[in-house]
């Protein structure tokens, strides 16, 4: 029932878009019926032959940014979380940085790393780094200290304690943070590309928009959305697996 209403709503939105799109200035808006041909041209590599290369570049940037964010976030989170004093000193400082809209760092990154891939990777890294670190900190706080004490009393060394007590207890929170981190790394890379780049999906989008090829622009946005939704679907699959495993 609700599903039907949802579909009807979606159809209504498309219909309104179609009607409005036909009536509007074609440079400003295009109806869905004009997007489909553009999408076909795009997929057949006629309108943008460098689509595969751009897609690959963007994916590579995301992979690098996210990989670095996870590595640094885990390291930083555990370093801060293991020592009470250090954690209490730097935790709030991290949280305060979190209150700053991350995009303020982007111009500095652009200045430092240039207009190419490096600045996008750096920005994606920065965005993904925070949620991972904060999730590790939150996860450590969730571990029942009694369990650690009991494990110690039974003669478990620090490695055993870490692997068999701490990781399972914090897995849930940790995996959630890793998923958020991925979503933010993706956003970081794409924001970076749109704010200024010569290659990658963002550059294609900017190109289409700059030449007022609105139908191509919409088609490219849809392609990018597929990439974003796909990466999140993958992450949610992993999350569900981990959730099952930790139960």
């Amino acid at each position: 029932m609700t599903v039907l209403v949802r579909l009807a709503l979606l159809a209504a939105v498309l219909a309104v878009w179609e009607v409005a799109g036909r009536a509007a200035n074609p440079l400003m808006a295009v109806p869905p019926s004009a997007v489909l041909p553009a999408l076909r041209e795009l997929l057949l590599l006629r309108s943008y032959p460098d689509l595969p290369a751009s897609l690959l570049l963007t994916l590579r940037e995301i992979a690098l940014a996210y990989g670095l964010a996870v590595a640094a976030g885990l390291a930083c989170g555990f370093a801060l979380g293991m020592n009470r004093l250090v954690g209490r000193a730097y935790g709030p400082m991290l949280a305060a940085l979190y209150a700053v809209p991350a995009v303020v760092w982007y111009p500095s990154l652009m200045l430092f790393f240039g207009l190419d891939a490096a600045s996008k990777i750096a920005f994606g890294f920065l965005l993904g780094f925070f949620p991972v670190t904060l999730a590790v900190l939150a996860g450590i706080r969730q571990v029942n200290p009694q369990l650690v004490t009991v494990a110690r009393a039974y003669g478990a060394g620090p490695v055993r304690v870490f692997a068999s007590v701490m990781v399972p207890a914090m897995l849930f929170t940790l995996v959630g943070g890793l998923r958020t981190g991925l979503a933010l790394s993706v956003i970081g890379v794409i924001v970076g590309e749109i704010l200024g780049s010569k290659r990658g999906m963002g550059a294609l989008i900017n190109h289409a928009y700059g030449l007022l090829r609105t139908a191509d622009y919409v088609a490219l946005v849809l392609m990018t959305l597929v990439l974003i939704v796909g990466s999140d679907a993958l992450a949610s699959l992993v999350e569900r697996r981990a959730r099952k495993w930790s139960e």
Binding site: I187, V191, I194, Y209, L212, L225, I228
Partner: peptide, 12 residues
Amino acid sequence: IPKILVLPWIVL
């Protein structure tokens, strides 16, 4: 969804 994708259109 990252809203940045519609930013070019909004500016347009």
